[in-house]
Design a binder for these strands. Structure first.
Length: 752
DNA sequence: GACCTGCTGCGGGATG
């Protein structure tokens, strides 16, 4: 219990943390009417007040993380006089900064510290005021901080001379990406300028791997980061997986005559159960978001009721998106947003009743984040997942009979309940971000010695996987592209191309926006699709309602030529396009061989589950890994996409074309004996160098500045990020030894 | 084979 400061004698005894806060902050807390401090606040306050530790505060959305950090930080900052900006808060979204700004203004006022915000939508006048009189707390995006280094590099030292703390909001949104690496580098460069360490406080949703988050917050020092994980138990969660069967399309009938389709049933169920409340409906693709919001609106019109369903995704105009956000936030009328991951994190949209997820979620981490958007104020969080699978007939492809999407979604829900979620890939080199940071560091001070650059960015900074020899190759690659020149004194300066790049305002972001590739068949254009991943000849894709195999990729012209895919069992895409983790596929296998039926399945999903298990046993997948189908082989590996891609690249070295398809690898033009022979040959050699293996993959350019890298560097980068040779060899060994994908699993009799 | 995020400085014209 917290007592007002005027009679704080009784309060002190009960909350030691409260008693240690600045009196003005105690008064502020009192005016908020909080009954007590939250568990994480009680623990974070002493951790931040005592010493200069880095701290991660991890709790569910709306768990009071911001206050847990800001109250002790302000207490300390106010106690010591210092010039310039005292606290810097970095946030992944402008909208979040605006939210925080409003919330913090009053607290800042209480202790006499001004709050500033700095992002692309903040006017020059406000920015000018801060530069003239730097003080208080600054809320900023990584991109704006980058711009500050490039445009005002020499001012950084004075601006941040008295900086006491750095707060990273929504830490989980940065971990593992190039934007995250950019942020790590900027924070490190700031410390290099100040010539001292500044304590970092990370605020995060509950993470799957706290050790990795700590290592992210303080590279090479994660072990010393103080971790404060909320012990408050999450509220009640209600989960349901709903299954639907889509009848086979008949070409001779129009859609109107087709009767109920899975789409119409799902739309009907959403309309009936979600209307009248505030909900978020997550759908994995923008095009599907459009399709579903159109279907829901049409249904509302047909029933003569007001439409409450509105689309929200990244390709919609800012105005339209803000209309939907405003409706959600105001809470005046019931409204549901049909959205992609745009509403997964960020702005406070008030209390949301139900989360719907159409299709298998992209990852367990993402599902958890989405679920966290509902169930505030003691109400249970509700998640309904809708899965549709095709009707089975005599010519249904083998993979469709396994009901893979149903099993994937069920596996992910199981892992969510267990508390697991995907860790990031810690080994990724991120050369593209090193290009940006090298140029930015040079622009910051006008020029730099190669040795200093390597020490600052790699040896003491976050690019620790890059040694001095590799860095020298990297610098030569930049020089060859005109980004850098070396003066007669050996100082690196921006070259003509480098100046052009740095002076373009697109330079400040570390990530790239999708570019479109033209797709053509025999020279005739079929259309264009955005591609931001490696495209390998032989890979299959669905485009314009037809199945194709990639024949040739022209990276310069941004053209992809395709030929119609051959018969057999073509892939059926499902779920997100995200890389699925080993653990999810392993859990799927466990569900196939098990006897229990998860309690969260509805009757439709139970039926799909039973069909999938039946097909699994008919194919004898419990004891065999390879199913031959005409000229093609299905190799069931039950591993994540990183290992599947690696085995695909290994097979390509043996001149075998294959494509990853959910839990299996689809190899064409080879029989079971042939595949086994290739696996044996691969294992008989010493482990392949991942960099050599990467050379077999076409179009490895994925990140923003990959175009400036040599093939050698691109291979290192690709190998670090997308290949797992050790994992691949372990799986192939299991296949040859006839071992189960699950350690300790004993094949058992097929149930009746 | 998906989705999302971010952005400077300056000049010109309108407005108070």
């Amino acid at each position: 219990m917290i007592s007002p400061p005027s009679n704080s004698d009784s309060g002190k005894a009960e909350s030691e943390a409260f008693a240690r806060l600045h009196p003005a902050l105690q008064r502020w807390i009192w005016t908020q009417g909080w009954p007590s401090l939250r568990d994480i606040q009680e623990r974070a306050i002493p951790a931040i007040l005592d010493g200069d530790h880095d701290v991660i505060i991890s709790a569910a959305t709306a768990g009071g993380k911001t206050e847990a950090a800001i109250l002790p930080i302000l207490t300390r900052v106010v106690a010591a006089e210092a010039p310039g900006i005292r606290v810097m808060g970095v946030s992944p979204l402008k909208a979040l900064i605006n939210d925080q700004y409003r919330r913090l203004e009053e607290i800042g006022e209480a202790v006499g510290l001004p709050i500033h915000r700095w992002h692309g939508d903040v006017g020059q006048a406000n920015k000018g005021r801060l530069l003239k009189k730097p003080a208080g707390l600054l809320l900023i995006t990584p991109e704006s901080l980058e711009a500050m280094f490039v445009r005002r590099g020499t001012l950084i030292r004075n601006l941040f001379a008295g900086l006491g703390f750095i707060v990273v909001d929504e830490l989980h949104a940065f971990v593992g990406s190039e934007r995250g690496r950019q942020l790590q580098t900027l924070l490190h460069r700031l410390e290099l300028v100040l010539r001292r360490r500044v304590p970092r406080i990370g605020l995060s949703a509950t993470l799957g791997d706290m050790g990795m988050a700590a290592e992210f917050l303080r590279p090479a020092g994660g072990a010393h980061v103080c971790q404060i994980v909320s012990s408050e138990r999450g509220g009640e969660v209600r989960l349901q997986l709903r299954g639907y069967i889509d009848p086979k399309m008949r070409r001779d009938r129009s859609e109107e005559q087709m009767g109920p389709s899975a789409f119409r049933e799902i739309v009907g169920h959403i309309c009936e159960n979600l209307r009248g409340r505030r909900n978020l409906i997550f759908i994995n693709q923008k095009s599907a978001v459009e399709k579903y919001s159109d279907g829901l609106r049409t249904l509302c019109e047909a029933r003569n009721v007001p439409n409450e369903f509105f689309p929200h995704h990244g390709s919609l105009s800012k105005g339209l998106r803000e209309d939907v956000e405003r409706m959600l936030k105001s809470g005046e009328t019931p409204v549901s947003a049909v959205c992609t991951s745009t509403l997964e994190l960020g702005i406070d949209i008030g209390d949301v009743e139900t989360i719907a997820q159409v299709g298998s979620p992209p990852s367990v981490a993402s599902m958890r984040q989405r679920l966290g958007r509902s169930g505030r104020r003691g109400e249970p969080a509700v998640l309904r997942i809708y899965i549709d699978e095709p009707e089975i007939s005599s010519d249904t492809p083998v993979l469709d009979t396994l009901r893979l999407e149903t099993f994937e979604a069920a596996a992910m829900v199981g892992l969510l309940v267990e508390g697991w979620c995907e860790p990031p890939i810690p080994s990724a080199l991120h050369f593209s971000t090193l290009v940006q940071q090298s140029l930015s560091a040079i622009a910051q001070v006008g020029g730099a010695k190669a040795q200093d650059l390597w020490q600052g960015l790699c040896q003491s900074g976050p690019f620790q996987g890059i040694d001095d020899a590799m860095f020298a190759v990297f610098l030569r690659s930049l020089a060859a592209n005109g980004l850098l020149v070396q003066s007669s004194e050996g100082i690196l300066l921006l070259g003509e191309q480098g100046e052009r790049l740095v002076n373009n305002y697109d330079f400040y972001s570390a990530f790239v926006t999708d570019e479109e590739y033209r797709i053509e068949h025999e020279g005739r254009p079929l259309g264009s699709i955005p591609i931001n991943h490696a495209l390998i000849p032989g890979q299959m894709l669905i485009f314009g309602g037809r199945r194709w195999t990639v024949q040739h990729v022209d990276e310069e012209q941004k053209r992809v030529s395709v030929v119609p895919a051959r018969g057999g069992s073509p892939p059926r895409y499902f779920g997100g396009g995200a890389k699925v983790h080993d653990r999810v596929r392993e859990e799927m296998f466990r569900l196939y061989v098990g006897h229990d039926v998860p309690a969260f399945l509805d009757s439709g999903a139970k039926k799909l589950f039973a069909q999938g298990r039946e097909s699994f046993h008919e194919l004898r997948l419990m004891e065999r890994r390879i199913v031959q189908h005409g000229d093609d082989c299905h190799v069931f590996l039950w591993v994540g996409d990183r290992v599947l891609d690696t085995i695909g690249a290994l097979l390509r070295q043996c001149n075998v074309t294959s494509a990853p398809c959910a839990a299996c690898l689809l190899a064409s033009g080879v029989d079971e004996r042939g595949i086994i022979g290739h696996f044996e040959a691969i294992l008989s050699e010493s482990p392949q160098d991942p960099k050599v293996l990467a050379a077999a993959v076409k179009n490895k350019r994925r990140e923003k500045h990959d175009g400036f890298l040599t093939e050698e560097l691109l291979c290192s980068d690709y190998a670090s990020r997308d290949l797992d040779v050790e994992g691949a060899r372990r799986v192939l060994r299991c296949v040859l030894d006839g071992l189960s994908p699950i350690v300790g699993f004993r094949p058992c009799a097929i149930p009746p």
